[in-house]
């Protein structure tokens, strides 16, 4: 007879396993966000291939959308670059299949907006995303009131639909948000769009402890975290810190005037991820 832990591990999702492992290591995780296909599919593929090795514990893969209304200028530009170079949702799923074949363990979460998924078909999308090796979805414009048509197929496909809590989520709103939450809860640390201001450490600590009264799930904090120091600060309270804009910005700094990647692009972005990962590892919990 195998021991109980083996069977438990089999039933656990990659996301659960990864947060359990982080807990065992007494540290928070780093979630790195990049846009699929930014600036082009080749460069983006090379980048994503290196993200886990550089120290990211979980990877958020942005699905480009023409009208990303929760994103600031930096991520808007990243999505636009990807779309202009022919990225589509189908190509994003193909990229995920490629990455999953090389890495069986790192959790992948798709982040984006609902319309491309609706056009694809929510049911078909959930099945195809799960088959490609996706573990979770973060859909910015799909609040609990509208989530059912994706949440049901996602649940059947074994995908976590990650719910978002924000500075406007009070004790009346939080129960609605966490009711069907799975995987982890994403705390949006600022009232605003991505990459525009820095999260305030005290507010984040307060919000995370309030959130823990409503959910036992791990809590990741994102929006407004740019430096290894900020990531370390967030890591004291949260189970993971999400960094996106700073990485997409570094990528953009390594494009030439024609928008083509300069030779050092991949290394520059991965070096930032490594620095963020060591920042987070300075905090023992």
């Amino acid at each position: 007879m195998r021991e109980r832990g083996y069977w438990l591990a089999l039933a656990m999702s990659r996301i659960e396993k990864r947060f359990a492992a982080l807990k065992a290591e007494s540290r928070a995780g780093l979630i790195a966000y990049l846009v699929a296909g930014d600036p082009d599919l080749d460069t983006s593929t090379k980048l994503f291939e290196g993200v886990a090795a550089a120290g990211a514990d979980l990877i958020e893969i942005g699905m480009p959308f023409s009208d990303p209304m929760a994103d600031g200028p930096v991520i808007q530009a990243g999505g636009l670059r990807a779309l202009q170079n022919g990225m589509t949702l189908r190509k994003t799923l193909a990229l995920v299949r490629h990455l999953r074949a090389r890495d069986a363990d790192t959790p992948y979460v798709l982040m984006g907006y609902y319309n491309p998924i609706y056009r694809y078909g929510a049911e078909a999308f959930a099945e195809d995303a799960a088959a490609a090796g996706i573990d979770g979805l973060i859909i910015v414009d799909l609040p609990p009131e509208e989530e059912r048509e994706l949440a049901d197929p996602a649940e059947r496909a074994g995908l976590d639909l990650v719910r978002l809590a924000t500075p406007t989520s009070d004790e009346h709103r939080l129960p609605t948000i966490v009711k069907r939450a799975s995987g982890f809860v994403y705390y949006v640390a600022i009232a605003g769009i991505t990459g525009t201001r820095s999260a305030d450490a005290d507010n984040v600590h307060r919000a995370v402890s309030q959130l823990r009264r409503f959910t036992d799930l791990p809590i990741a904090v994102g929006f407004g975290i740019k430096t290894p120091e900020q990531a370390a600060e967030v890591a004291k309270a949260a189970d993971a810190a999400v960094v996106g804009t700073a990485l997409v910005d570094r990528l953009a700094q390594n494009l030439d005037s024609a928008g083509k990647p300069k030779p050092g692009l991949v290394d520059a972005v991965l070096a930032d991820i490594a620095a963020l990962a060591s920042g987070i590892r300075t905090v023992r919990k």
């Binding site: 414009d141 809590a165 406007t168």
Partner: peptide, 20 residues
């Protein structure tokens, strides 16, 4: 009551805006 006209309408906004 949820703002739907049949299939259409609804409240597809970021969670930050939902309470507003």
């Amino acid at each position: 009551p949820d703002g739907h006209f049949g299939l259409y309408g609804g409240r597809y906004v970021a969670e930050t805006l939902m309470p507003l």
